[in-house]
Simulated assay, not measured.
Amino acid sequence: MEINNNIPQATAKRLPLYYRFLNNLHLQGKTRVSSKELSEAVKVDSATIRRDFSYFGALGRKGYGYNVEYLLEFFRKTLNQDNESNVALIGVGNLGTAFLHYNFSKSNNTKIAKAYDANPDLIGKEVGHVMVEDVEKLDQSLSESDIDVAILTVPGHVAQSVTDVIVKAGVKGILNFTPARLTVPADVRVHHIDLTVELQSLLYFVEHYPLEKK
Rank of each mutant, 00 (worst) to 15 (best):
1 M>Q: 13
2 E>N: 11
3 I>Y: 01
3 I>K: 00
4 N>H: 13
5 N>G: 04
5 N>D: 14
7 I>K: 01
8 P>M: 03
15 L>A: 04
17 L>I: 15
19 Y>D: 05
20 R>T: 09
20 R>K: 13
21 F>S: 04
22 L>W: 02
22 L>F: 05
22 L>D: 02
24 N>G: 05
27 L>D: 07
32 R>W: 06
32 R>M: 06
36 K>M: 04
38 L>K: 02
38 L>H: 01
41 A>K: 10
42 V>K: 00
43 K>R: 05
46 S>R: 15
46 S>K: 15
46 S>N: 07
46 S>V: 04
47 A>Q: 08
48 T>A: 06
49 I>A: 05
50 R>D: 15
52 D>N: 09
54 S>V: 11
56 F>C: 05
56 F>E: 06
56 F>Q: 05
57 G>I: 13
58 A>N: 14
62 K>R: 12
64 Y>Q: 07
64 Y>V: 10
73 E>H: 11
75 F>R: 10
76 R>N: 13
76 R>G: 15
77 K>P: 01
77 K>N: 13
78 T>Q: 12
78 T>E: 07
79 L>H: 11
80 N>D: 13
80 N>Q: 11
81 Q>V: 10
82 D>F: 10
84 E>G: 05
84 E>Y: 08
90 I>L: 13
90 I>S: 08
91 G>I: 01
92 V>L: 00
92 V>D: 01
93 G>I: 06
93 G>L: 02
93 G>K: 02
94 N>D: 15
96 G>A: 03
98 A>I: 11
101 H>Y: 12
102 Y>Q: 04
103 N>M: 07
104 F>M: 08
105 S>C: 03
112 I>H: 07
113 A>S: 15
114 K>G: 03
116 Y>A: 12
118 A>S: 11
120 P>H: 03
121 D>R: 13
122 L>K: 15
127 V>N: 01
127 V>K: 02
129 H>M: 14
130 V>K: 02
131 M>R: 14
132 V>C: 11
134 D>Y: 06
135 V>R: 14
136 E>I: 00
136 E>D: 14
137 K>A: 10
138 L>M: 11
141 S>I: 07
144 E>A: 15
146 D>R: 10
147 I>H: 01
149 V>N: 08
150 A>W: 06
151 I>T: 04
151 I>K: 09
154 V>M: 02
155 P>Y: 04
157 H>E: 10
161 S>I: 07
163 T>Q: 03
165 V>F: 00
167 V>M: 05
171 V>F: 01
172 K>L: 04
173 G>R: 12
175 L>S: 06
176 N>R: 05
180 A>V: 13
182 L>R: 08
184 V>I: 14
185 P>E: 07
188 V>N: 09
188 V>C: 04
191 H>V: 06
191 H>K: 03
192 H>L: 09
194 D>K: 01
194 D>N: 13
199 L>S: 10
199 L>H: 11
200 Q>S: 12
201 S>E: 11
201 S>Q: 14
201 S>F: 02
201 S>A: 11
203 L>N: 10
204 Y>K: 15
207 E>P: 03
211 L>H: 14
211 L>R: 14
212 E>R: 08
